[in-house]
């Protein structure tokens, strides 16, 4: 049995440092999720409008986000805009901007999808029962929309948490980077540290994302036939 390099984790404050690194990625994704929800919901509602101009613009925005890898967007914001506009941007802020830009598009698309998935007869039946537009929206459309939207947006949260692992590529010191530092620092005393450390990072991500995606699945199943 080869040495698995797990002992490194219990040396000094290594485990705490790894968790600190994880918190950095979590913080970025949570802030970005917050902004994405705030901006995505109104945008999604705007996208259900019939105006051709609005449709063209939002379509373009969604296609850009759909086609460009998040890493390219990170590079553009972190290296490109700083060069062109000459401002100073720290890596964490650049990450928040990129993930908000991406998340808003995804969230808006989910909101739009949820709204147009409500069949027209729901509006018409509610009107026929004598409800006014506000009541139709509040008591008929909104509850159904939320049931369709919530599982999908929870799923989006796990995707954003996973994608924040990319921020190490523009120099944010998050869990993978901390892992690298620990491995480098212990190169001589435990040459197999890479296994233990990267294995732990792998596990940490799984422990973080799995319960959230289970919740999403559970809600989806629970609400699917209502």
């Amino acid at each position: 049995m080869p040495n698995l390099g797990i002992e490194v984790l219990f040396k000094g404050t290594n485990m705490a440092r790894l968790l600190g690194g994880l918190w950095v990625s979590l913080r970025i994704s949570l802030i970005a999720v917050g902004f994405s929800v705030l901006l995505g919901i109104p945008l999604g509602i705007i996208m259900t409008a019939k105006s051709k101009v609005i449709k063209a613009f939002t379509r373009l925005y969604l296609e850009v986000v759909r086609v460009m890898p998040q890493m390219v967007l990170l590079f553009i914001v972190f290296f490109g805009t700083t060069r062109i506009f000459g401002w100073n941007l720290n890596a964490e802020l650049a990450s928040v901007i990129v993930f908000t830009f991406w998340g808003t598009a995804e969230m808006a698309d989910l909101v739009r999808g949820a709204f147009i998935s409500i069949p027209k007869h729901q509006y018409e039946s509610a009107k026929a029962l004598g409800m006014n537009s506000l009541h139709v929206f509040l008591f008929v459309i909104l509850p159904q929309t939320i049931r369709r939207l919530l599982p999908l947006s929870i799923n989006l949260v796990t995707r954003m948490i996973k994608t924040t692992s990319l921020v190490m590529m523009i120099g944010v010191v998050e869990v993978l980077k901390v892992g690298q530092q620990i491995i480098e620092a212990n190169r001589t005393s435990s040459p197999n540290a890479a296994f233990g450390v990267y294995g732990t990072v792998f596990l940490l991500y799984f422990i973080g994302c799995w319960p959230i995606s289970m919740l999403s699945k559970y809600l989806e199943k629970k609400w699917s036939n209502t």
């Binding site: 994608t163 993978l176 892992g179 990072v201 792998f202 799984f206």
Partner: peptide
């Protein structure tokens, strides 16, 4: 499904 590709590749 619940881990990022970057972490998988590192591993």
């Amino acid at each position: 499904r619940n881990t990022p590709l970057l972490v998988q590749l590192f591993f």
